[in-house]
């Protein structure tokens, strides 16, 4: 069985970020990148399946992004796996999660994958769309927000738990091929060893274009998207009453407030 794990480099804003003059994007100088928190868990899920079913399960991380997104793939490869896939050309720029899902679905077909493990959402945009859209485009069954997973190689069945509101879980059975979106806390992601980080540098990242995957340019970018950003802004918000001063002064006031509120 081959598992495809779509991962993403998320954008982290620094303290004095600003919206650009176009009013639709953040000044790129204020952005740093890191691997999406959820994807740490989905990649660990794939690695554990690969170890448990040694020799019969292969896991491949993939991303849709420009050259800088290779960092995220190398981070995955430092923990395991032999190769990764990156999809990009300029026609991908401006794609929303639905358009990106077209590329991931096409890659899953090309790779002949039977399982796609995506993150539930990303820390920067938090759309929570990509994985389940991939499932729809592939025509595969799917379960979102998965907090536990068991795979039976004998009958190609997955028994998973879907995490619901209030911490209740629903146990569900689903047969392969399938797409799952993985929730935080499903496992304890390992740390990469120094040796692993070194080895990752020599592992292959296959670069594919949308054309290689048979996805036409009108299916991508803003024309291929389900939504378009019209405006981005820093919201005016009500703010807490700030307690200022030196820490001893702040704490003195804090204790007064707490005592007042407790009616002491």
């Amino acid at each position: 069985m081959k598992i495809l794990v779509p991962v993403k480099q998320v954008e982290i804003l620094d303290e004095d970020f600003d919206v650009q003059d176009d009013g639709r994007s953040i000044d790129p100088d204020c952005i740093e990148f890191e691997l999406n928190e959820w994807d740490d868990y989905s990649w660990e899920t794939a690695l554990q399946l690969m170890e448990k079913h040694e020799g019969t399960v292969e896991a491949v991380p993939m991303t849709v992004g420009d050259e800088s997104a290779d960092d995220g793939l190398r981070k995955c490869l430092a923990k395991g796996g032999e190769r990764a896939i990156r999809v990009w050309d300029d026609s991908v720029a401006g794609s929303d999660p639905i358009a990106i899902a077209r590329l991931i679905a096409a890659a899953a077909k090309k790779e002949d994958a039977q399982l796609v493990l995506a993150g539930t959402q990303s820390t920067d945009q938090a759309h929570g769309q990509t994985g389940i859209a991939v499932a729809a485009l592939l025509g595969w069954p799917h379960v979102a927000v998965v907090s536990a997973l068991d795979y039976s190689a004998a009958d190609g069945k997955l028994t998973v738990r879907r995490e619901l509101e209030g911490g209740v879980e629903e146990e569900i059975e689903v047969a392969l091929p399938a797409v799952l979106t993985i929730q935080l806390g499903i496992n304890e992601p390992r740390y990469a060893s120094l040796r692993g980080i070194k080895q990752a540098k020599t592992k292959t990242v296959d670069l594919l274009s949308p054309a290689d995957l048979g996805v036409s340019t009108d299916q991508l970018g803003e024309t291929g998207s389900a939504a378009r950003v019209r405006r981005m802004y820093i919201p005016e918000r009500s703010k807490a009453e700030l307690i200022t001063g030196t820490p001893p002064e702040q704490v003195k006031r804090l204790i007064e407030i707490v005592n007042e509120l407790k009616g002491a």
Binding site: I98, A126, Q129, H142
Partner: peptide, 23 residues
Amino acid sequence: HSIDSLGYAPALAAKGGFGFATD
């Protein structure tokens, strides 16, 4: 915007070609 809608709304939107936004 709920655990259930996370589980089917993206499929609905992707297949139907609808406009789509979450949360």
